[in-house]
């Protein structure tokens, strides 16, 4: 089964991935993705009926601790990396009209 990735699909994936591709990039990405999905389809040869999806190899359980602060106040250090900051906060473009 050959996977043909339509322009609409690429558009949709672009929205999910929050990526804006040029037309040329989109074309190349669609071809790449089709080829990879063809390859992924190999998995359908395997009968996995009744096999539980395994997300982790070890049993994963919640790790809980008492709700007490253990880290210091490193707000200023963390904000040093912000592209824009003001009065101890991250600055982002206006989000409501």
């Amino acid at each position: 089964m050959a996977n043909i990735i339509s322009d609409e699909t690429m558009e949709y994936v672009g929205i999910l991935a929050k990526l804006e591709l040029s037309d040329e990039e989109k074309k190349a990405a669609a071809a790449d993705m089709g080829k990879m999905l063809d390859y992924f389809d190999k998995m359908s040869e395997l009968d996995t009926t009744g096999v539980e999806p395994m997300s982790h190899v070890f049993p994963i359980h919640n790790v809980l601790r008492e709700d007490v602060v253990t880290n210091g106040d490193d707000r200023d250090a963390i904000l040093q990396n912000a592209p824009a900051q003001k009065e101890g906060m991250f600055v982002v473009p206006k989000t409501v009209g």
Partner: peptide
Amino acid sequence: MLGSFVLSSGYYDAYYLKALRVKA
């Protein structure tokens, strides 16, 4: 892009969950 696609609704079972079953 590829990761977003295999997790998207309609493809999640066919690709992502299938891969987790193959992993098992």
